[in-house]
Design a protein around this nucleic acid. Structure first.
Length: 417
RNA sequence: GUGGGUGUAGCUCAGUUGGUCAGAGCACUUGACUGUGGCUCAAGUGGUCGGGAGUUCAAGUCUCCUCACCCACCCCA
């Protein structure tokens, strides 16, 4: 039996790499215009980093992490997300000592051992940004604005930005208590999943799609009513700032991020081209993560774009096959030798060129040149070699002319300019 | 982890109630055009019908098991 990729893991082939390079290059350019600098952290980390950061009770930690012991008996995990590693690196390398506010971005693969489906793989790719070192709502606004600016820049249309606030950690525990009290004698009305959520992560009940649960929650205490004055102001200021930046958003009081570290602002962007996993980007503020990872209390905010889903939403396949400048067609042993030398000479002079390595007929070589999108074909056979020339054929109009072999590379270079 | 669906050529897919069912289109190779691409025409190379058991004179087709993929749930980017 042939060895195949692991479940939920995919090869990205040359024919499909174009769109990946496009979205990555656009991200790098734009993120840097906004003052973010790239950081690359290891794919393997100590398991405890994620247990502390994402939350012990979350599904990601409980059932989705690729965790194992290395030869030294250390418990390590493939990273399931990018924020905790970035925060770890921020602290380990004392980035906060160099600058009060640190703005970072990353692009890379993440791993979660879930059952694959549309828009979900076990190895997936995220492009994320993190701003560490500020409590200001302007940071939240910048992060959301950058997300929007990025989508616009790559030509993505039809997305929806949803925002919400979860309150500070004190508010979060308060809401959980209130909701527990409210649902205490009504748990029998909840769906099967929500009964589990009631015990495990009660805020997620807000997210339930079952009608009975939705109806029940209409009379439940609202997060926005339960949060403190500071958090209310923060959210109000954020909304005002987004409006001044002309960011269209909807307030969705039911988005509740599944990672424990989120506080205050939570947001996501969804797109209708996707299946049921329709979030292409999600993020928010995480004011406790730096402290929980071993640093001092530090405000922070960021987002992660699901690159695989983003590409799905974009739909278009970008041509990745670069057209060849010139194809060298040869006939015979000696011309082959000379053609090979010229072909390589062109390459190091900035002219993309290639040739046949299978001793095929001229017809076959011409066909190949056509398929490769070659603008010119150089034809070299015994006859030409005797005359010390090479035929240069323009593939667009079929015009041919002879060029002295000694001048060939220079002549072709001129055509490129 | 739990459901449902689908596995036939490199790709997209036909294949009737088990009995010329190993097929088509595209792609690829070659030729028509002895050293010149695209268009046309012709020929050709591609398959343990996902894998394994079973029923039968006979299985791509029926039964069971298994694997993979897809979709959905949980959860999430």
């Amino acid at each position: 039996m042939m060895i195949k990729t692991l479940r939920g893991m995919k090869d990205i082939l040359p024919d499909e790499i174009g769109i990946w390079q496009y979205v990555e290059n656009a991200a790098k350019e734009l993120f840097e215009l906004f003052g973010y600098r790239e950081i690359r952290t290891p794919i393997l980390e100590e398991t405890s980093l994620f247990v502390k950061g994402i939350g012990e009770g979350t599904d990601i930690v409980q059932k989705e992490m690729y965790s194992f012991k290395d030869k030294g008996g250390r418990r390590i995990s493939l990273r399931p997300e990018g924020t905790a590693p970035v925060v770890r690196s921020y602290l380990e390398n004392n980035l906060n000592k160099k600058e009060a506010l640190v703005k970072l971005y990353y692009i890379g693969p993440m791993f979660r051992s879930e059952r694959p489906q549309a828009g979900r793989q076990r190895q997936f790719h995220q492009m994320g940004i993190e701003v560490i070192g500020s409590d200001s709502f302007y940071v939240d606004a910048e992060v959301i604005y950058l997300m929007k600016a990025y989508f616009d820049r790559i030509g993505l249309a039809g997305y929806t930005i949803k925002i919400n606030t979860l309150g500070c950690s004190k508010d979060k525990t308060g809401i959980k208590k209130e909701l527990t009290r409210f649902l205490k004698d009504k748990t029998n009305l909840l769906c099967k999943d929500c009964k589990v959520r009631y015990k495990k992560n009660i805020l997620r009940i807000f997210d339930c799609k079952v009608e009975g649960c939705k109806a029940l929650l209409r009379s439940a205490p609202k997060i926005i009513d339960a949060i403190c004055g500071d958090c209310k102001d923060h959210f109000a200021n954020l909304k005002k700032t987004l409006e001044s930046l002309k960011v269209d958003y909807v307030v969705d009081p039911y988005i509740v991020r599944g990672l424990d570290y989120y506080t205050k602002t939570a947001f996501e962007a969804t797109h209708p081209n996707l299946g049921s996993q329709d979030a292409i980007c999600a993020g928010g503020r995480y004011d406790n993560l730096v402290r929980d990872t071993g640093g001092s209390k530090t405000g922070a905010c960021g987002f992660a774009i699901g690159q695989d889903r983003l590409i799905m939403a974009l739909g278009s396949k970008r041509e990745s096959e670069k057209a060849l400048d010139l194809y060298v067609a040869v006939l015979g042993e000696v011309p082959y030798k000379e053609g090979f030398r010229l072909c390589n000479g062109l390459r190091i002079n900035g002219v993309s060129s290639d040739m046949d390595y299978q001793n095929r007929s001229l017809k076959a070589q011409m066909r190949q040149a056509n398929r490769r999108g070659a603008k010119y074909v150089a034809i070299l056979g015994e006859d030409e070699l005797q005359k010390d020339v090479i035929i240069l054929r323009n593939m667009a109009d079929g015009q041919q002319r002879e060029i002295k072999i000694n001048n060939f590379i220079d002549e072709v270079k001129k055509l490129k300019c």
